[in-house]
Design a protein around this nucleic acid. Sequence first.
DNA 1: GTCAAATCAATGCGTTCGTATTGAGAAGGA
DNA 2: TCCTTCTCAATACGAACGCATTGATTTGAC
Lengths: 215, 215
Amino acid sequence: MADEGRPAVRGRGAAYDQRRDAILEAVFTIVDTEGAEQITLRRVAERAGVSVGRVQHYFPSRDDLVLAAFTAITERGARQVEDALPRHPDGDPPAEVVRAVVGELIPRTSEERRMFRIMQAFETYALTRPRLADRIKQDYDGLITLLALLLHQHHGDRDAADSAFVPQARELLALTTGLAGLTIVGTITPRQAHDIALRRLDAILDDRSRPDGGG
Amino acid sequence: MADEGRPAVRGRGAAYDQRRDAILEAVFTIVDTEGAEQITLRRVAERAGVSVGRVQHYFPSRDDLVLAAFTAITERGARQVEDALPRHPDGDPPAEVVRAVVGELIPRTSEERRMFRIMQAFETYALTRPRLADRIKQDYDGLITLLALLLHQHHGDRDAADSAFVPQARELLALTTGLAGLTIVGTITPRQAHDIALRRLDAILDDRSRPDGGG
DNA sequence: GTCAAATCAATGCGTTCGTATTGAGAAGGA
DNA sequence: TCCTTCTCAATACGAACGCATTGATTTGAC
C-alpha cells in the first residue's frame, strides 16, 4: 500500500499531487499543534479548507491517511540527509561530509524544529505498530551504517573493517538524536546542540587510536 | 489539581490508593500496547477489570485521568534517579554517583524499557500541552544541574563555577537520552547503550583539562 | 462531440466517545 | 442505631467519530 503510485494512465493528474500534499500538510499542522490523536477526517478537511469527501477520495481510510503522512515525513527526513551528501563520491573529504550529515540531524530553523516535532510524534505513534517501528529501526540502522562508513573513509584505515567504527557511529547518532530531542523540549538551543555535536564529532575525527568494539 | 491529595478525613481510605494505582497501571498498559490515543474511560475500565463508574469516581474527567498518569510516570522516573543518589551527601565519591545516575537513565530490564516507552509517549503527548511541556523541561534542567554539580565535585575545582560543567552535563544527558531512545527502537541493545554511555562518561571524568563553555 | 473515468460535495448510518445523573450498598463517626 | 459520606454500578444523552453511498460535475482520451 506504499507503492501504489498514482493512476498514471487515465487520471486527471494535473493537480493531483498538489492537492494530496495539501491534505498531508494539514495533517502535519494538526499533529504539530494538537497532537496525533486529533487526526480526524473532519478536522483534516477543515484545516486543509476542503470537504471531507475530498480527503476520503485521496485517502480511502483514516489508516491510509495516517500511513501516508508517516511515509511522507520520514521520506522528507531521508531526503534532507541525502541532500547533505556530495553528488559525486570521493568528491568531498569524508570529514566534511560527516559534518554536514551530523549538522542536518539537528534542527536549526523553526521549520526544521517543526519537522522534528512531527517526526517525534509519528515515531511515538509507531511504537505500538510493529510494521512502522521496523521502518524507523531500518532508518536508524541506515544512518549508523552511513556514519560508520564515513568515519572509516576519513581514517583511511584499510585494515579495520567498517564494523570497527560502528560503536562510534552509534554514539554519534545517539548524541545527535538526544540533542535534537532536548532542542525540541527547549532545554538547549539549536546553537548549543550544534556546538556540542560538532565538538564531539571533531574529537572523534581527530582520534588516531584504533576504535575498539564496544559491546 | 496535582496536589489535591486524598479526602484524608472521612474517606474509607483503606484501599483507596491501591484502587487508584490499579487504574493508572491500566492506563500505562494501554499506552504501551495500544498508544496514548486509546486512553478511553471504557477501555481503561475494561483493562483494569472495573466499571466505568469507578474510573469516573477516582478521576472525574478524562483529562484528570491522563494528567494523573502523566504525573505518576514522571514521578516514578524522578524517584528512580533519586534512589541512585547516596543518602548521605559526601558519602560516596562523585564519580561513582554520576555513574549510577547515568546508569539509571538507560533502560536495562524489560520493565524499565516498558517505563521508557510510556514516558516517551507522554513526552510526545506533552509537546502540544505547554503546561506539561514545562514540567518536562524542568525535569531535564534539573538533571543537567545535578550532573554538572557532580562533575564539579569530582574535579574538585574550586575556581570554576558549576556552570562551567554545564556543557558536559548537557552532552551527557543528550547522549543518554539518545541511547535510551535507540534502545527502545531496538537499534541497539541495552548493554551496548550502557557501554557507550559509561565509556564516554569515564572519558569526561578522566579529562583533566578545564572545560570551556560551549555556546 | 462522446463517454468513461476521475473528482468530490453532501448526507446518512452505526459506533464510540466523554460526561452527567441516579440510586443502591458499605463504612464509620455520632 | 442512625445518618452522613464514600463508593461505584448502571444508564442515558449529545457530540463526534469512520465510513459508505449517492449524485453532480469535470476531465481527457477517442
